[in-house]
Design a protein around this nucleic acid. Structure first.
Lengths: 228, 228, 228, 228
DNA sequence: CATGAATGAGCTTTCATTCAT
DNA sequence: GATGAATGAAAGCTCATTCAT
């Protein structure tokens, strides 16, 4: 005789199911929000659309995020700032030389951020920064500063080890940052409207930058010579 | 008997004056719109503000531009093409070596575009590109392509003369473009919300880029060595 | 074999306990509602707050009261009638003269009603009367009329004994009522927003009224002369 | 031959008509707002209803009043606080004795405020004070304080002239205020739901108060003896 | 019975756009 | 042509109420 679930089981089960739904809500909302923010921008995305895409009602969104701005912050935390800890660890335990590290960083950025929807957030911030000062301050604090710090340490490591020439690392940061940000912006703006044959190959683009960057930085030509 | 201006004369006169004003209207409106769009962004600029800055009423703006979007398109059309002819000539008659030319180009860009309101248009295009595909295609054709061509010829000149190493100029273009565009975007977005002490010095930023760029490009270290 | 409580016993027991809780629920909810309605007003009190203060969930509140309005009605019903019997007795057995009785009545009102949460109900009724005509009629019947009757008898006692001058007791009632109601209302509205130094001292306020009231009412100056 | 209006006349006429409409708008909106605020309360009155009653659209209301709270303030200014200057003048130039002045004041209040919709504002403030602190502070400043000052001067005049007994005028103010406020509140709350035969006759109510008030205040029985 | 996640009508406020003058 | 008063469609957010569990 098959055992029927006891009353107690049913109750526990039901609650578990409900709680699983509840636990899943924020994630579903964040995913929907990322999708729409990246596609349409922050201001142009209506809270109700996010809710609908996540399959809930307007009210439910505000049950989990107290405002549209808080929703955006959560999206940023989920997709960018929450990952710096991991990246910092990776940087500190990296075993190759600084040339390899720099190359690895830019490549990893492309794979984990640049090529994903997360890169749309950078575009977003650039586009709407002026209209949402509080958001911009948050982004500056949570993303820009840690990101710059991370890059600065990579450069400093190379300078300290004698691989890279001496340079003002404060501004050197932008030697890496500019190519990445430009690529992120390009892909989410002009790049969207470019005919396939004129499109930018992100990997070729990045390699061109990495090669020239290292040629300029390394005290003597890097071991891995330019790929062109 | 003194000749009074005939009624017809008066009418003709008034009409002439009005038509002169009428002809000037679009320009005044475009100037006001550029000013405000660059300063506050597209969405945050109210049609009434543009009209007021141009010294006309809200209704008049809509007499000349059927919508705020059309006004935006007109601003882009008005302000971005048209200077390439002059720049092409300058490039072709430049008498220094390619290192000097490249350095001159980036410096000139900063003085004539980057530091002026015109650089706000790039930001504008990046921000609103997704919402105006037609406009973006136009921008691609009229600005991006000629700009890329110009930069490509600079690189090719250096490669041909043996000053620059061999490289894929198609992608090499972005070695120059990315730093400029990043700066333009930065100044009109995050840069607006950064504390004074954390601000980016554009000249130092550009020099860092130029130095490393040339170190990477030149077959042997450029005559003018890095400034750091 | 030890007798285990039968399943039936357990059920009966649990049901008993639950029903005891069930019986207590409405009272706990009404108490919480009184507290919050008086403190924050009807509109500004959220159903969820009432439930939380009563230690139940939002859903449970609506199990006992079909709407927030019904809850409000129940609060009024619960808290205002029922004390008149006691007061009537006190009045009839009072042994002092009418001057003393009148003074005693107003003082006792302050101590037992005016200074307590109960006075908030008057404010509540005044505020929401327009929106609950049915409730207002109920209040008129159960509170206003008995209260007026009580006061009228006090006045009549004084007139009959020759202590008070002849007057239309129907309207004389308001000579006592107006000061009390004004105080109750003041304390729960404007009084809440007044700086400490401009605050109204309720006892001084009431004494001023009592003094002048008696000076006006008594055939010859009351034994206890004004306190100023 | 009848003179036709010149072109200039027509234009001037049209503008005049439009400007008359524009000038009339605020008044129409204030009238509608008073009507609805008094009838339904501040919170329960929707901005759109006010607009509709005034015969304009929602947007137009906000063209003239920047928020619902500002609209309410304007209603208060229009109907109460704006009239204190006139009342102060009247008080200062009053030629009768203080007994007559006090009687005149309460009578005038009834005719100009108590019996009109304006008295609903007092009820409003009492009802909703707790929920709108800023409004309450405004009312305290613009109405309560000037009102109290006015009444205090009346009492002080009587004390100084020897007509009234010595008393703490600070609290004496409420001897006049409480009867008026109670009446205003009564009429807009419980009074709305009382059967005709049990209704309160405002004039009899006020006279009862005035008579007893003066009997209590005057050093010797007022010339005009109680009317009952 | 009790829960609390989910709902969605409803509110104030903004602003591009229209149109009578 | 020019005006600016008027419009009304949105948008973000709240909270009384419902209902699956």
């Amino acid at each position: 005789m098959p055992t029927l679930p006891s009353l107690c089981d049913i109750t526990a089960n039901a609650r578990a199911k409900r709680e699983r739904r509840k636990d899943a809500r924020p994630g579903e909302l964040l995913e929907a929000a990322l999708e729409l923010f990246v596609e349409k921008g922050f201001a142009a995305t209506r809270a109700e659309e996010v809710a609908k895409l996540a399959g809930v009602s307007k009210g439910t969104l505000f049950l989990y995020f107290s405002s549209k701005e808080e929703l955006f912050k959560a999206v940023v935390r989920e997709n960018i700032s929450g990952r710096f800890a991991e990246w910092n660890t990776e940087l500190e335990t990296f075993e190759g030389n600084s040339t390899e590290l720099l190359r690895y960083c830019l490549t990893a950025w492309w794979e984990r951020v640049g090529s994903t929807k997360a890169s749309g957030i950078s575009k977003l911030m650039m586009s709407e920064a002026g209209n949402f000062p509080e958001l911009t301050a948050f982004y500056q604090e949570e993303v820009v500063r840690p990101g710059n710090d991370l890059i600065r340490r990579i450069l400093q490591r190379g300078v300290d080890s004698g691989e890279f020439r001496k340079l003002d690392v404060e501004y050197g940061v932008y030697l890496l940052l500019a190519p990445m940000m430009f690529l992120a912006l390009w892909r989410h703006s002009i790049g969207l409207c470019v005919a396939a044959e004129a499109a930018l190959d992100p990997v070729a683009y990045l390699n061109t930058h990495i090669d020239n960057l290292l040629l300029g930085l390394c005290v003597r030509p890097a071991a891995d010579t330019p790929s062109v």
